[in-house]
Design a protein around this nucleic acid. Structure first.
Lengths: 251, 251
DNA sequence: GTCTATACGGTGATAGAC
DNA sequence: GTCTATCACCGTATAGAC
């Protein structure tokens, strides 16, 4: 009965997502996933031959979810700079409030295996393929800092690969804003990183921040719900020379 | 020969720190630590009876290192608000540039076992003890509470615990600034979280950000070195009504 | 398709020689 | 104190009955 198949498969994926997000790849136990999906360990292997295969299925979907807000600010060329920022923060905080365990999980697995980022990101956001992942030296430090810049010779063939095509439009809007005097002076890349940081970190650092600010689970969640507005306030204050460009979004 | 003992002990700790930071508690292998310390697995167990004990020794020191910048902005009551911010960002970025793997490691282990935060933070920064950690159900494996804690039961008496004593002075300075009109309106707690986020996240999200911004290891490190100044710029812009309070720090 | 039972490899920890 | 050899356990994966 194929209907049952699909049901079980979805149950397994849901359970696997919970367990992997909670414990990471190494900490997750196939037995635990089987338990949460209400099947036996053997049946679990029947659907997904190995832990690796199951993990990749889950992780592929999770990283897609995590990258959607980024795609949002990239795809639509008609968006104004401020709209891009509002869209990004809004959709990111929304996604993360619904998947609080996502960021730490992604960062954890990406750090322990940076290689898989490229292929997964590539299929989610075409146009990111750049240099191969150099990072990470297995054991001791020693990043072979051989060639700082070897990409500049690529200009001979294809055109603007040096340009960070992913964020190019966004960056250009910031530069235009600075040129016209509407924006303060900022480093566009640093600004983007700050934007991402302020949204994502509160979910990664939750246990620490909860203690520092003495909040229980409910209070911390409320704190995060209110955070979207506050982040927007900060970002616009950082960027725009005239205070409060428009503040008639809510309430 | 006791000199040899201490040498080996330090070698073990250094190796263990590298391996634990790289792979987390669950992913770390005693054999790997032994190899990096150039001793046998049995000798490793001779110095530290169990993986658990070794981990706690390392983690205790690491979380202390991670919390030092926070202590810095708390201890000295004579610091001005702007000085506190400068001190915090400066010392945090400094610590993290020297220990890039620290934040992810801390967050990872704190999330998979929030219980141990309380006791460790307590002994590092007295005055944080608050409500018991409610959050999150550690999966299974992980470290049972070894708890060599018998020191501070004395704190159970004294009162004003409701006040967030840790950050109270900092928060009050922000509130005073707002009252006097020197500061924009901000939620002090959200501001503090943003400050921490902008410093810490770039180290946690390194693999992702490297791809997004198309930077190799060297470029990313330079980017992080420049970041301190940029963060300060942003924070002061968020907080202060008059632009550029003083910008004669460097160059 | 789903289960129980089991094979197999890897890992933390110990025993005992030197 | 340091090593090699070994134990005991746990987790993934498979075999085979139903």
């Amino acid at each position: 009965m194929q209907k049952k198949d699909l049901q079980s498969e979805q149950l397994i994926l849901k359970a696997a997502r919970r367990v992997f997000q909670r414990s990471g790849y190494g900490g997750a136990r196939m037995q635990e996933i089987a338990d949460e999906a209400h099947i036996s360990k053997a049946s679990l292997h029947y659907y997904y031959r190995s832990k690796d295969k199951l993990f990749h299925t889950v992780f592929r979907e999770d990283i897609r979810l995590f990258l959607i807000p980024l795609i949002g600010i990239l795809r639509d060329p008609s968006l104004s700079l401020e709209s891009r920022i509002r869209t990004f923060v809004g959709s990111y905080m929304n996604t993360l409030l619904e998947n609080p365990g996502l960021p730490l999980f992604i960062m954890q697995e990406l750090s322990s295996n940076p290689q898989r980022l490229i292929s997964l990101v590539e299929e989610t956001v075409p146009g990111v393929e750049g240099r191969p992942v150099d990072g990470y030296t297995g054991s001791d430090a020693s990043v072979g800092g051989v060639s700082n810049r070897e990409s500049s010779d690529s200009t001979s063939k294809e055109a603007n690969v040096d340009e960070i095509p992913l964020l190019a439009a966004f960056i250009r809007q910031i530069e235009d804003g600075m040129a016209s005097g509407r924006c303060h002076k900022v480093d566009p890349e640093q600004f983007i990183l700050s934007m991402i940081s302020m949204c994502v970190f509160p979910f990664i650092g939750r246990p620490l921040i909860k203690v520092l600010l003495k909040k229980d689970e409910q209070q911390y969640r409320d704190f995060l719900v209110r955070r979207e507005e506050e982040i927007l306030l900060y970002l616009l204050r950082i960027l725009y020379t005239n205070d409060k460009p428009k503040d008639n979004s809510r309430h």
